[in-house]
Design a protein around this nucleic acid. Structure first.
Lengths: 133, 133, 133, 133
DNA sequence: GTGGTCTAGACCACC
DNA sequence: GTGGTCTAGACCACA
């Protein structure tokens, strides 16, 4: 459920944080649900436990999860709306980024929208097993 | 013309590279045009000359510019199509990212497109001095 | 195993690259073998770590080694044939240089070959503790 | 008559020096012959006059040429044997370099000689307009 | 401990 | 003035 891209410039602990926020926001993790243990998650995504630990620690500081010694980590009370707003903000931000980037191309609004529609259609095609570009 | 964000996770030298690719792709820099000297650009964007030098060096390895010792760096022959395709690939990538992110919300294609249109309109509004969100 | 000459016109990072290519081509470094850490090699050959880092980075761009943050650098898959051909090209180039130089003496092919054989014999003699020229 | 390789790591003024030594050693330039003026040579090999000036200056320090203000530079008395021995030493050095390089390949003497013969034959073929490898 | 980025500043070759 | 190399040393992400 959690995916991470080692070649990205974004630190892995940041990617892990975002993934967990996403799972909470989309209801795949609910309040009081246990998170995978640091060691398990580290093994699953082939990453050092320290890296997972840092992600968990920072999420706890954000109030999104609570860690109980010896028992593990759990989604905190009230995490869902918090995560939801975070994720929405994140989505808005990267859409704005795509838009800003497109504008530096000297593309007009229609052209940008057309390009986006095109990528959207392609991604739907890929899902249905359509050919890659 | 070249802007970098020191707080970004993306290394500054990568940002510089991308900016130059953008300027070439959009025709603001043409074949044989001189680039700002390493020292000048470094001073302008308040960055160490070595950082700019690294960006220039890697762009030269990519064949986008050619540098002559003691004279400066210049946009290489055939840089424009190369830059154009690089920038298109880059733009496609971040649009795909936005789309992938949007899909985690279980939104249909139309809803995603609507959201994007919304952001696009907002960004146009902001430009015209409309209210910030 | 890696030697560099600080007084040479060839940049140190290029010398390091060539040495590693040589070690791979001669089988002294095999696929997936770890390279010395940047700091260790820098200390060994008495050079700044940044200089070694540059050599490693460029070799990685050439696909000859792969580095994993926090773990170190390793000989990449398929590095051996690549290194071999690189080294052969390099050797051919310096032999051609020697030949071109010899030809400026208006020597015939046989004379040039004789001269080369002579130096070759001398170098073997030196190895066996023979007199220096 | 003088050729220079801008992409070489060897400084251009060193290459110019070597070329002149070669011309003297091979008798293409004789004692008291005038050298091309700094500006002419610079224009011919497309190089900055300062670079040529430095080569001439260092050759003068070596006693190979003498410069007379307003008249130009001339091959100095006794330059020929000096140049000859320099060039021979140089040839020996690069042959030794080729040999040393070949030995790091773990090649035996016969193999090295074979390789050299091969390159020699190729170079003769090229001269006669034979096909390139 | 590892590598990666960045800074500050030196010296050199070349224009 | 230009770019190129190298050093010294800082801070960060990651194992």
């Amino acid at each position: 459920m959690i995916r991470v891209d080692a070649s990205s410039f974004i630190p892995i602990y940041e990617q892990i944080k975002k993934e967990i926020v996403r799972l909470v926001a989309t209801g795949q993790l609910k309040v009081h649900d246990p998170l995978p243990s640091i060691r398990d998650l580290a093994a699953e995504i082939i990453v050092n436990p320290n890296t997972v630990a840092r992600a968990y620690r920072e999420l706890e500081q954000d109030g999104l999860l609570s860690t109980q010694k010896g028992r593990g980590s759990f989604i905190a009370d009230g995490a869902a709306p918090e995560a939801s707003s975070k994720l929405k903000a994140y989505l808005g931000r990267i859409m704005d980024e795509a838009i800003a980037e497109a504008k530096t191309f000297d593309l007009g609004g229609d052209a940008i929208l057309g390009l986006f529609e095109d990528r959207l259609r392609r991604s739907a095609d890929r899902r249905r097993g359509g050919r890659h570009e």
